[in-house]
Design a binder for these strands. Structure first.
Lengths: 113, 113
DNA sequence: GCTGGCTATCGTAGTTCGGCGATGGACGAT
DNA sequence: ATCGTCCATCGCCGAACTACGATAGCCAGC
C-alpha cells in the first residue's frame, strides 16, 4: 500500500496515446481529462514555461508564479497525472519537462473537433 | 439587474477572437476558460453531436445523453458562456449549433502550446 | 383566453477544486 | 551525524462543479 510515490519508470497501463482513436466515448473522456488539466491559468502558465525553455526547469516554477510552493506542487501533480509533463529526480531537486506524447495527444484530440 | 437572460444578439464585449494574441497572461486565461468548458465528457459529447450534424440539433441532445434535461441545459449554458456554441430560439424550441469562432480559437490556442 | 410541450432557472445535496500553512522525507554539504 | 534545502503530502477551509427534481417562462395550437 505504499506505491504512492510517483514512479515514472513504470509506464502507465494505458495504450500508446498515438494509437488511440480520436472519437468515441473513450476519446471523449480522454479529451475531457486533458482539457480539465489545462483548465486553469496557472497550469497553462506552467506548461508554457516548460515549453519555452528547452531545458527542464525545476522549482524555479515556484518563483515564476505568485503561488505558494505547495500549490504549485499540486498543479504539477495534476499535469503529471494527466500525462502532460514528466518529473525526474535530479539529486535534491526535481526536474520537470514536457511530455511530448501527452501534449501531442491533446493537440490531436482538439484538432479533431 | 435583469440582463441575466442570455441575449445572443448583443455580441460580447471582447475583441474578435481571431485577432487576440496566442500567448501571454490573457491568452493563458482564455485558454484555461475554453479548456475548462470542454473539461467534462458530457460537454465534449455535446460538441461532437453539434459538429457532426451540419444542421443544428435542438433538444434532441437530451435524448442522446444519459442525463436529466436540467443537467444538459446546464452544460449547454457552460458551452455557450465559453463561446463554443450558440443557441437560437426557433419557435417553441431552441436550436444549438457550433460557434465556429470559439472553436477555431480553442484550436489555435492549443496548437500554440 | 386555455392547454401542452419545450427550455431555462432555482434550490439542494454531494463531490471536487484551489489555496494555504505545516509537516515530513530525501539528498548534499558540512 | 547534523544541518539546510528542496519538494511532496496532509489537513483544513471556502468556493465551484455536477447532478437532480421541481418550478416557472415561452410559444404554437386549439
Amino acid at each position: 500500500m505504499d506505491d504512492r510515490t510517483a514512479n515514472n519508470c513504470l509506464t502507465p497501463p494505458t495504450r500508446d496515446p498515438d494509437l488511440r482513436p480520436v472519437e468515441g466515448k473513450e476519446a471523449d473522456e480522454e479529451l475531457a481529462t486533458l482539457a480539465k488539466a489545462i483548465g486553469h491559468s496557472a497550469r497553462v502558465q506552467i506548461l508554457r514555461l516548460l515549453a519555452h525553455r528547452t531545458a527542464c526547469v525545476c522549482g524555479d516554477i515556484v518563483d515564476e508564479l505568485p503561488l505558494a510552493q505547495s500549490t504549485v506542487s499540486q498543479h504539477l501533480k495534476v499535469l503529471k497525472e494527466a500525462g502532460l509533463i514528466r518529473g525526474e529526480v535530479d539529486g535534491p531537486r526535481v526536474c520537470y519537462c514536457i511530455e511530448p506524447r501527452g501534449l501531442r495527444r491533446l493537440k490531436v484530440l482538439v484538432a479533431g473537433l
